[in-house]
Amino acid sequence: MTAPLLDVRGLKVAARLGDRAHPILKEVSFQIMPGEAYGLVGESGSGKSVTSLAVMGLLKKPLRVAGGEILFKGQDLLQLSKREMRRLRGNRVAMIFQEPMTALNPLSTVGRQIAEMFVLHQGKGWDEAQRLAVDALASVRVPNPDRRARNFPHQMSGGLRQRVMIAMALACNPDLLIADEPTTALDVTVQAEVLRLIKELCAERGTAVLFISHDLGVIASTCQRVGVMYSGCLVEENETQALFGDPRHEYTRGLLGALPRLGSRSQHGRQRLVDIDSIISDRSKLTETRFIAPRAAEGGQP
């Protein structure tokens, strides 16, 4: 059994307002194996983004970690100093954000922004780093990488900007890529291209991915294992196929029923979509049951 790359154990995050601490994440635990694509899916406010920010060490006040461990290659990220965390971030753990326009610096060319990664994390000189940046752009299949490296973010389309983000994130060959709604702002055909790119590049390099999305379709088409979050809890976790084929938790069942499925109207006629509140009597009880399926036995251990 390989050791997990990321092992989040009983992570609690609270928001301190006045003298009261409000729980935001309630003991979230999950593991990501090296090279695995793991998806966290949930509706707004379920805590999926807070989870990713906690892993990156980017929680802002009033949010703070109130308990638990985040083990990355066996090392607890919560114990690291800010300086050590900075060295890790962007180098071993990288992140792609939802809005590529706000995540890129508008005053600097994209080539320079990618080159910065090599200078900061690998100690390269600027000249060499600029050359590597062009290679990085080529690797995310940006046409004319030479010319594009001299572009400012506003000169690029949304899809290209997101490719730049991916090039930056993968520049140092991280072990873990966190993708927080990476395609939400994009058109469907561009979204399909960007998802394929992330999938292929990570598979090639053996990068593990923590994929965060509210879109069940995106998660199903990219991840091997999925966790469903509701109100700060991981209520169900399973292999993708099993989770979508045989959802165990009533919230997951409600979510899947609420989704209009492509092709279902031609097969079964127009069915009323499931109103999640009509099948769930009491939302406050949803987090009392959790279904976490054991990982498929690998080397004898569950």
Binding site: V188, T189, Q191, A192, L195, D215, L216, G217, V218, A220, S221, T240, Q241, F244, G245, L256, L259, R261, L262, G263, S264, R265, S266, Q267
Partner: peptide, 26 residues
């Protein structure tokens, strides 16, 4: 949706991330 003719329509439909299609259940 059942017999799209134009290549662009087909591209649009093929690009939708849909759980059933992704998992080849349908």
């Amino acid at each position: 949706f059942e017999t799209p003719a134009h290549p662009y329509t087909r591209r649009l439909i093929a690009a939708i991330p849909d759980p059933d299609v992704a998992l080849r259940r349908s």
